[in-house]
């Protein structure tokens, strides 16, 4: 219990501030409505009104919660209004992009560690690639691939790949170079080949680095997938839900979609962390 108390306290604080914000943000519009209707509610009634608008400037936590609950548990998962459906669309492209990104990141790192020319030349480009705002790049990727007849999952996944290969590449370069001199000298005394050094030393030594960077990469992948849905007029996915919500001022929908997105993110990061811990345990790491 003592473990959760601080977290719950912060949460309660956030919700309290949120409710105050709801009142402040929604009050002016509610006042106008009441003036036009000639209604004169008491203060308590007025506060209630600011928290139950259909299209509030800032939706109240309970409105978001109800919307999220209805659209998650009370709809068929095949329905266009189901958050499960939209989350799945985004999740599938996140996972595909994450897979591509992890493989690409590992390959780049292996190249950098083993080929001097790549070591000297590749890193600046990799870093430069991450300085371009993904919002500017995403539509171009989608358009270019649409021009060659590739639409749907793949272009979206590639945006995720673009964001997720970077932390994996950087983490893996560090991981593959992490073995101490004594470990490498030992391999040298055995007259071990480069492939032996890689498979028996560098790769196992890099595993903790790999999972740490995969945690960052999977979160970046999710951002990529959502951003990839924004400029493309995608009809499904959390990004599409956000965009649709903003077109029609469905602020409650937007917040519910954001909640869905955060839950997906938490699940992804937790899963990667869990797989990482399992792998390390199987590799004999001393339990903390």
């Amino acid at each position: 219990m003592s473990k959760y108390l601080p977290v719950l306290t912060i949460l309660a604080g956030i919700v309290a501030v949120w409710y105050v914000g709801v009142y402040v943000m929604n009050a002016p519009f509610q006042q106008k409505l009441n003036e036009r209707a000639g209604a004169e509610p008491t203060f308590v009634e007025f506060v209630g009104q600011t928290m139950s608008q259909p299209k509030p400037t800032l939706p109240a936590p309970h409105q978001v919660a109800v919307n999220f609950f209805e659209n998650t548990f009370l709809r068929k998962v095949t329905s266009g209004r189901s958050l499960v459906y939209h989350s799945w669309v985004t999740l599938s492209s996140t996972l595909l992009g994450f897979l591509f990104g992890t493989v690409l990141g590992i390959l780049i790192a292996v190249g950098i560690v083993h080929v001097l020319a790549l070591d000297r030349s590749l890193m600046p480009w990799i870093i430069a690639s991450q300085t371009i705002p993904i919002l500017a790049l995403a539509p171009m990727i989608v358009v270019v691939f649409a021009a060659i007849g590739l639409t749907g999952l793949i272009p979206k996944a590639l945006i995720s790949t673009y964001l997720s290969f970077f932390p994996v590449a950087v983490g893996m370069v560090k991981g593959l170079r992490s073995p101490e001199t004594a470990y490498l000298d030992l391999m040298h005394t055995y007259n071990a080949s480069r492939s032996d050094v890689f498979w028996k030393l560098r790769l196992p030594a890099s595993v903790p680095f790999l999972f740490a960077s995969m945690k960052v990469a999977v979160a970046a992948s999710l951002v990529g997938a959502i951003v990839g849905e924004l400029p493309t007029g995608a009809v499904a996915g959390i990004g599409a839900k956000l965009l649709g919500g903003s077109y029609y001022s469905q602020t409650i929908d937007i917040f519910a979609a954001l909640v869905a997105g955060s839950i997906v993110a938490v699940l992804l990061v937790t899963t990667v962390g869990f797989v990482g811990r399992m792998t390390e345990r199987a590799m004999g790491v001393r339990p903390a």
Partner: peptide
């Protein structure tokens, strides 16, 4: 492979059990 070398630190690979550490040169 004329010699075996023992370092100041044991330099055992932490992800290998003792038997697999000893087997490392044999695998190679």
């Amino acid at each position: 492979r004329a010699y075996g070398y023992v370092f100041q630190a044991a330099a055992l690979y932490p992800w290998r059990t003792i038997e697999r550490n000893v087997a490392l040169p044999l695998e190679i």
